[in-house]
Design a protein around this nucleic acid. Structure first.
Length: 593
RNA sequence: GGGGGUGUAGCUCAGUUGGUUAGAGCGAUCGCCUGUCACGCGAUAGGUCGCGGGUUCGAGUCCCGUCACUCCCGCCA
């Protein structure tokens, strides 16, 4: 028999009454009546009420012991009387009458209470993460994460995928995020890099003939954190398949995601077949390539209206002449909204650093007119044209932004969220997945004006190789796609370019010589010349999936031992200094300031 | 690198126009209490108001600087 327990703290019911049991766990809460003491004992599985009275010789000792100490109790299971049941607890119909007890692990005075739903400062939570993790909500989140990963793993294996590990110490790659570097002792002056993703390895696995691969893969990128982005490291469901087209990948992922989200959440998954939106269309209608499709608001381009002579909105007209664009968001049937609704949104836009959002509401008494501060600048004909372009009806309002394209996109994308929030038109009880497809292969770097890869340099361009127009690289689309849920980008993926000749050509557009490519992507490019299958894949972010399922806004809430925003682990004191001997062995010297 | 928010007891917070001795709840310690499940009642301890400087007769409060945490922008193929 186990020394510490015969049952867990979530197990006992009235069927067990009369039995003598042993329980071990943490003291969640005590209620001391002086001559009668209730102790809620907690473990991973639940809470059981135990009690002891002053007749017992252990009474005084147990009365004194700190909350969160670990104790072992033995005693008889007692069925509670009707008026003392606790329906909140699984074990609420019984209690344990303590006969003996023993302290297994004492607890000092707590820096933060465990038994509380209050929110605490992040640095305390992170420093005492082991206490924080005892708290119900975080504890449940982490268990959910475990179950999600286990479910994904078994689904993937059922679908015929093989799970492989890939190296953690690998080489630095020139494209993408900043690398974490690891100095090599045996190769002085040289560095490994932690993988930003197992990108090249998974392609090599395909070239090696394994056909279907997946991994719950750790990925390392040395970039600044966000609420939905851990500093340093995160996990992807990395997968890759041979002899597939884009649609084959979509099918696998749609099935997996639908099943996963239906299993682990009560929210409704809106589409069985996820809608596909082209990148260009998404940028136009939503101002972003990660639209929240729960939000019905759409953006339209009405720049050409401001070239009409019967529109007198001179500020916008002047800006349009110098290359700015005008786009707007239509809100349905908002003519009854108070002035403050509109002004709040305008003020919000100004807080975002924009010059504001112009607005008007469409009305019709005898003629169609626009009501609002800038309404008077629009003729009836121009309003009719606006209504045609934007699908706006009488009673609807328009919010307009005029600026350089990128600034308009950014503002209106955020404005879509803000306005929808104010109007309360987002159904929070749903998951709206979509695919963003047809990404451009290349884009122009705003700072350097050079042509660069807009996403993954290993993506396959669309169209027959012979008919590709290399002189107009910016028009080239790639078999590159993102999966988005509720405005959160879960993953990028692509059909890969498995043809070395084509790859050299594409890299040369981005300014890489054949030698550069041979050097930087040695493993890949070499392998592709020895018989590579057409292949493709994707890598949905595990942390963000769990965030969505747990309904959390911050990634730390679903991460066991997270770092803070400055990429420090306050519990482990990482990163930390190392001693001179370690540095010497690595041939490193710290530059003194 | 830039912008915003926060920082007062172990924890969560209040603190008026700048005005005497900085408060509450939880927690801790001590006492009372045999049916609670956020048990109840009473008492006690606990403060460099993040830190430094300034204005002022007087600063938790106003100003400047700085640090920490956080959110956002940049960044994240």
């Amino acid at each position: 028999m186990n020394t510490y327990r015969t049952h867990t703290c979530g197990e006992l019911t009235k069927k067990d009454s009369g039995q003598t049991v042993i329980l071990s766990g943490w003291i969640n809460k005590k209620r001391d009546h002086g001559n009668l003491l209730f102790v809620d004992l907690r473990d991973n599985y639940g809470i059981t009420q135990c009690l002891i009275d002053k007749e017992n010789k252990f009474f005084k000792d147990l009365e004194k012991i700190q909350l969160e100490s670990v104790i072992k109790v033995s005693g008889k299971v007692n069925e509670r009387s009707e008026d003392t049941l606790n329906k909140e607890l699984k074990t609420g119909e019984v209690e344990v009458l303590i006969n003996t007890f023993e302290i297994l692990g004492k607890c000092k005075e707590l820096p933060m209470p465990v038994f509380s739903d209050q929110e605490y400062a992040e640095d305390i939570r992170l420093k005492y993460r082991f206490l924080d993790l005892r708290r119900k909500k975080v504890h449940q989140n982490i268990l959910l994460r475990s179950q999600v990963i286990s479910f994904i793993r078994s689904e993937m294996i059922n679908l015929g995928f093989n799970e492989f590990q890939t190296p953690i110490l690998t080489s630095s790659s020139p494209e993408g995020a900043r690398d974490f570097l690891v100095p090599s002792r045996l190769n002085p002056g040289k560095f490994y890099a932690l993988p930003q993703a197992p990108q090249q390895f998974k392609q090599l696995i395909m070239v090696s003939g394994f056909d279907k691969y997946f991994q719950i893969a750790p990925c390392f990128r040395d970039e600044d954190a966000r609420a939905d982005r851990s500093p340093g490291e995160f996990y992807q469901l990395d997968l890759e398949m041979s002899f597939v087209e884009q649609e084959d990948i979509f099918e696998v992922v749609e099935k997996l995601m639908s099943k996963l989200f239906k299993k682990f959440s009560n929210k409704k998954v809106l589409f069985d077949k996820f809608p596909k939106i082209t990148f260009d269309n998404s940028m136009l209608k939503y101002g972003t390539d990660k639209p929240d499709l729960r939000n019905p608001l759409e953006i339209s381009d009405i720049t050409k209206i401001f070239k009409r002579d019967d529109v007198k909105f001179d500020i916008f007209k002047k800006l349009v002449k110098s290359g700015s664009i005008v786009r707007g968001i239509v809100t349905k049937n908002t003519k009854g909204k108070p002035r403050s609704f509109f002004d709040n949104i305008d003020k919000w836009a100004k807080d975002q650093g924009a010059s504001g959002l112009a607005y008007f509401t469409l009305e019709c008494e005898k003629n169609i007119s626009a009501k609002g501060p800038v309404g008077k600048f629009f003729s009836e004909d121009s309003l009719k044209e606006i209504m045609k372009i934007t699908n706006a009806k009488i009673g609807d309002s328009l919010f307009l932004a005029c600026n350089k394209k990128n600034d308009v996109l950014k503002l209106l994308s955020a404005a879509r969220d803000k306005i929808a929030e104010d109007l309360d038109i987002i159904n929070k009880n749903t998951f709206a997945f979509c695919w963003i497809v047809d990404y451009p292969m290349f884009e122009v770097d705003e700072k350097t004006n050079k042509v660069i890869f807009s996403h993954n340099p290993f993506s396959m361009p669309q169209g027959e190789e012979k008919s590709l127009n290399f002189s107009k690289p910016l028009e080239m689309k790639a078999y590159q796609y993102d999966i988005v849920c509720n405005g959160i980008e879960l993953s990028s993926g692509a059909i890969r370019n498995h043809k070395p000749d084509l790859m050299y050509k594409l890299f040369s557009i981005a300014g890489y010589t054949k030698e550069d490519v041979d050097n930087k992507f040695a493993g890949m490019i070499n392998a592709l010349s020895y018989g590579a299958p057409p292949h493709g894949g994707i890598a949905p972010g595990i942390d963000r999936i769990v965030m969505l399922l747990a309904n959390e806004k911050n990634i730390r809430e679903v991460t066991l031992f997270p770092m803070n925003q400055n990429a420090q682990d306050l519990m482990m004191n990482s990163p930390s200094e190392v001693n001179d001997q370690q540095l010497k062995e690595l041939n490193l010297a710290i530059k003194k300031k």
